[in-house]
Design a protein around this nucleic acid. Structure first.
Lengths: 201, 201
DNA sequence: AACTCACCATGACATCTGTCAGGTGCAGTC
DNA sequence: GACTGCACCTGACAGATGTCATGGTGAGTT
């Protein structure tokens, strides 16, 4: 029996996935979480083999959770499941020690199989996404550029961004300018969505 | 037996929901769709009682699908299911003739119940969202303001937006300016995300 | 018929932004 | 110790942006 944990903030999706996996004879869903920061304790308490982690979660994002699970030294293997197929996510997930990465577009029938393969020690990566993240290359943005872009995501004026990241307006403009060059865009707002869509933030 | 159709672009979620509902003795999932524009034909072919429609779908969005189902004159009742609890969506869904509106945050156990109540002729609306869309009031944006904001969502410069909507740059700036006033924001990018987050676009 | 409002546009203005050229300091690394 | 790259900053400048005043059209109200 493979002991599985399912973490997803959308109760409906979580519940549905749980029943789906519960139907498999060799899988046993022993825990559920609606927030990222609940996962570690649940894994500890229930001796989980495979953790199914959504990327978008309140409390702690799925990739961070994965990292903390690795750090904990327990034998859990993480399978990241996400809505948005952003190439940058794959890279970050693998660096965090994830054993698998699938998008929610994949047929339901393949999910149980992915869990089994991950449990068996294989790496399961969505093919299309793997290819994309290869040709994409690594995240070209520096840490500060990412900070500034994150603050600029809502479209706020530069003065507000500068306050949010505790930098001078001029410095913010320079970071934005270089980010715009790297993303081949011409406004900060454009650069921000471009970076987000690639999973660089 | 209540005959149900499930439409959601994410195969995993769709499959999970289908099995979840399939377990209910009085529900029969007779059709599935991964795109909005497939729904009408499927409903026609399978004599569906209740259509579960996701808002975000390629081809045709869930609310439009709902409208087209009403227009078709068949006796289907639509239950809108969405990831994002945007108040404006509720209003639009109801205007389109939807019989119910639930977010994917709701517990899985309640979904089957919602389907039954919708089939029985009740209106099922997520409580929190209903309240929000009441205090929110109607969408204050004019049609053109919405067009322009949609084009400005990606953060493109005004010249590009103007070309996209076939208007002069000055006119675009005027529309954006009034949209910014209505949304109490100070940049077009801010106004655009603000409007999107309320379901005004 | 007078009125309101969405629609489309122009021109002028102050301000905001993005670019460029320059400078400092600090951490690696060869 | 020289070199490189990132972090921070300044100042100056052209062009983009947001505001405002103004004006015209047509659809719908009162």
């Amino acid at each position: 029996m493979i002991r599985v944990l399912v973490a997803d903030d959308q109760a409906l999706v979580r519940g549905a996935v749980v029943t789906l996996l519960g139907l498999e004879p060799d899988l046993d869903v022993v825990a559920e979480a609606g927030r990222g920061d609940e996962v570690l304790d649940l894994v500890r308490a229930h001796d989980v083999d495979v953790a199914l982690l959504d990327v978008e979660m309140p409390g702690m994002d799925g990739i961070e959770v994965c990292r903390s699970l690795i750090a904990s030294g327990m034998g859990v293997r993480s399978l990241i499941v996400t809505t948005f197929g952003r190439p940058g996510f794959v890279r970050r997930a693998l660096e965090a020690g994830a054993a698998g990465f699938v998008v929610k577009d994949t047929p339901a029938s393949e999910l149980a199989d992915a869990v089994r393969r991950v449990h068996a020690g294989e790496r399961v990566i969505d093919g299309a996404l793997a290819a994309e993240s290869l040709i994409e290359g690594a995240n070209p943005l520096t840490v500060r550029e990412q900070d500034v872009l994150r603050a600029a995501l809502g479209g706020a004026p530069i003065a507000v961004v500068a306050k949010a990241v505790h930098l001078s307006e001029g410095t913010v403009r320079n970071y934005l300018s270089s980010a715009m060059a790297k993303t081949a865009t011409s406004t900060r707002a454009e650069a921000a969505v471009h970076a987000r869509d690639r999973g660089w933030l």
